[in-house]
Amino acid sequence: MREVIFDTETTGLDPKTGDRMVEIGCVEMIGRVETGRTFHAYYNPERDMPAAAEAVHGLSAKFLSSKPLFADTFGELLEFLGDAPLVAHNAGFDFGFLNAELTRIGRVPIAMDRMIDTVAIARKKHPGAKLSLDALCSRYGVDRSHRVKHGALLDAELLAQVYVELTGGRQIGLELSAEAVPANLDPAEGKSSDGYPFTSAAAPVRSRAPRLHSPSAEELARHAEFVAGINNAVWTR
């Protein structure tokens, strides 16, 4: 199954009050494995950049002033996204900004049923723990030493690694056969009983032919002799 992990950077916290998306980074995964395909773009927000936002991602109004408008290049982004499920950390925030940009130019927003929120998954898996991307990177040993400031593509790449750990870790795809599907998975729905999407029947067959474990005649005779020698056995009472 193809999935796209993405992250955005913005001018603030609320698109309803005029904040805009200024950067987006996307990472393609198939069967929870990164394919190497990515998408990255900056956008001119046509407004100022608040100091608090610039302190987070380092993108100044001057830098962004030479970048294209979302309205002029959105087609490239939508082509990359395709119809894949979209994975983001605190996904409601990123979906809100992406859909606000699409709505602003008269395009159909992305359906919310395509949203997969890694914060929600982490909260269920690690109740009471810190759920920031930094905290999850530390928990799973994902190297973030090069993350000086937030960056959409860098954060999407980190999240892709965290997402794999949250949904099965490095053992994904090690089923005993290509037909094997864990009991809590529903292939018809494409989700587990926990509500997480999954990829089934994607791994090559790794199982060996089963060994025969029936006892030989000699082993049966030795067992009968052993049992007969037990004094006052419970099964004889």
Rank of each mutant, 00 (worst) to 15 (best):
R2S: 08
E3V: 09
I5P: 00
I5C: 00
I5Q: 00
T8V: 10
E9I: 00
T11W: 00
T11Y: 03
L13G: 02
D14E: 13
K16I: 10
T17E: 14
V22A: 08
V22Q: 02
V33N: 07
E34V: 12
H40C: 06
A41G: 01
N44P: 03
N44D: 06
M49K: 06
A53R: 09
A55M: 07
A55V: 04
G58H: 05
G58C: 09
S65E: 11
K67A: 04
K67L: 08
P68H: 11
L69T: 11
A71L: 05
L77P: 02
L78V: 14
F80S: 11
F80C: 15
G82V: 14
G82P: 04
G82E: 13
D83N: 15
A88D: 02
A88V: 01
D94M: 09
N99I: 01
E101W: 03
V108M: 12
R123P: 01
K124R: 15
K125I: 07
K125G: 13
G128C: 07
A129F: 12
A129L: 11
D134W: 05
D134E: 14
L136R: 07
D143Y: 07
H146G: 11
H146E: 13
R147S: 09
H150Y: 03
H150R: 10
G151M: 06
A152N: 00
A152M: 01
L153E: 00
L153V: 06
L153C: 05
A156Q: 01
Q161A: 02
Q161H: 03
V162H: 01
L166E: 01
T167H: 08
T167Q: 10
I172T: 04
I172A: 09
S177H: 07
A178Y: 03
A178D: 06
V181Y: 06
P182H: 13
P182W: 08
A183W: 07
A183P: 03
D186C: 13
E189Y: 13
G195K: 10
G195R: 12
S200E: 05
S200L: 05
S200R: 06
P204R: 14
L212T: 10
S214A: 14
E219Y: 12
L220M: 05
R222F: 04
E225A: 09
E225P: 01
A228V: 03
G229M: 03
I230M: 14
I230C: 11
V234Q: 10
W235H: 05
T236H: 02
R237E: 03
